[in-house]
Design a protein around this nucleic acid. Structure first.
Lengths: 146, 146
DNA sequence: CTAGGACTTCAAGTACACTTTAGGTCAAGA
DNA sequence: TCTTGACCTAAAGTGTACTTGAAGTCCTAG
């Protein structure tokens, strides 16, 4: 499979795929007269890489995910990210509710909604938890698509 | 409320809060001898801004969200983002399942999981949907926290 | 034989969202 | 009075994740 075909199948750009190879998120494919020739295994791995990126893994984290599979460091990372993904899901759910309410005109204004959100949060988490909660934030970044 | 107190309450940095003001995500607060003095309304709005950022709104989108509230352009944006957030949630769910399976050693390797994901996707979406699916991707970025 | 299109490498460029730096102001406590 | 710490502005710097550009290679069709 050429890189062009892989772009069609995955929606990734050719430059992104080459970049992922350089960064060792996917193994270097064999070459046919200089050109990359991917097999279906490469595509399967690329799908996982893509999902992980979409779920907020950084390039370095995806590298760990695929190169240290099964090892102890890997388990630590996977567990940490699982926690991050769960809290991200919670926040997405809150935002979904907010947008639905705003679209249904159930909220008079933005500040009103902010107060509602603050209330629901302070009910479920310790409120005196002061400062430094977002140090060095690994940004989970999700594109649309699918 | 000083900016310092606001950082403690929201977990945002002072520079981020000033930046949001410059970018008009929050209204300029009144000043006491040059220093910002926020009221609780500002804090409520900041909570919404924070949630929207965490849910993948860009700075420009958050600006639209708060400055064009209720207008038609605003509804369009809100509906589009609602769709993006839903598909992001789906992808997070797939990643959660994947990580849980991998941690339980239910998957022999990464490629195996990739094939499983491809199968579940091609079952639910038209497979001949070729190319150009991720043009100009607005990256939804989520930090941990909460 | 030549043209076109898809591919190659390597280096440099870009966008976004802040952060950091430099230099200054202000109020309160020792 | 001096110092400390929190605050101020404006401009420049940073990291991440690619993208773009330049210059060249390879295969196929005409």
């Amino acid at each position: 499979m050429t890189i062009g075909e892989l772009t069609r199948r995955t929606g990734l750009s050719a430059s992104a795929i080459r970049y992922y190879e350089v960064e060792r998120l996917i193994p270097p494919p064999r070459r046919r007269s200089g050109r990359r020739d991917f097999d279906s295994g490469a595509m399967s791995q690329l799908v996982v890489v893509q999902l992980a990126r979409d779920s907020g893994f950084s390039i370095a984290e995806v590298r760990s995910l695929v190169t240290e599979f099964g090892r102890e460091r890997w388990r630590k990372l996977a567990q940490r990210k699982l926690g991050e993904i769960r809290s991200a899901s919670r926040r997405l759910r809150v935002m979904t509710n907010l947008l639905e309410k705003l679209l249904d005109c159930e909220c008079p204004d933005i500040e009103f909604c902010g107060r509602a959100i603050s209330r629901s949060r302070s009910g479920s988490s310790p409120k005196t938890r002061s400062g430094a909660s977002s140090r060095a934030r690994p940004p989970l970044s999700l594109r649309p698509k699918v």
